[in-house]
Design a protein around this nucleic acid. Sequence first.
DNA 1: AGATTGATAAGG
DNA 2: CTTATCAATCTT
Length: 178
Amino acid sequence: MGKRLLRRYYSQPATVLAADLIGKLLCRRTDAGILKYRIAETECYYREQDTACHASKGKTERTKVLYEKGGTAYVYLCYGIHSLFNVVTGKEGFPEAVLIRGVEDYNGPGKVTKAMSIDRSLNGIDLVTSKELWIEDDGVRPEYTAAKRVGIDYATPEYRDVLWRYIIKDGRYKAVQN
DNA sequence: AGATTGATAAGG
DNA sequence: CTTATCAATCTT
């Protein structure tokens, strides 16, 4: 049985947690029972200076959740179709988050949320205390590789090309390439 | 390569 | 109010 991740853990910077969350268990309570999937692919979005981060243009109605304390869930609708799930990290007042791009069995951030029934009703909840959605550590520490982030061509070059995407090294998991 | 889809943010 | 844009995914 895994141990739930707590505030101290989530208070670390997104630059650290994006890699460390690889191999953790994303847990969701549903009518059918509790789903647990191992996180296989993440991306780091780090503060207002990161031109790929939603908060790069400051705090708005949508991005205000990014400024919350570490452990808050940030779920938003992408392209009018897909809910994308991020873990807010770091200290309150500093917009950082880790996008969960893939879990075992489901490659792609929209597929993860669909499989686990994660939608915008969970936006802003606290992963430390929620009975609906949380993350556990069962001690597994998979190897991973780093790559460029996906779908952020609008960012300035130094942030467009930084290796802030992390992918598990596991034969069962095949990350979708660009 | 093109279609889909609707919330969001900026501009008039 | 109008319009462009978009942390994607599926089909052609």
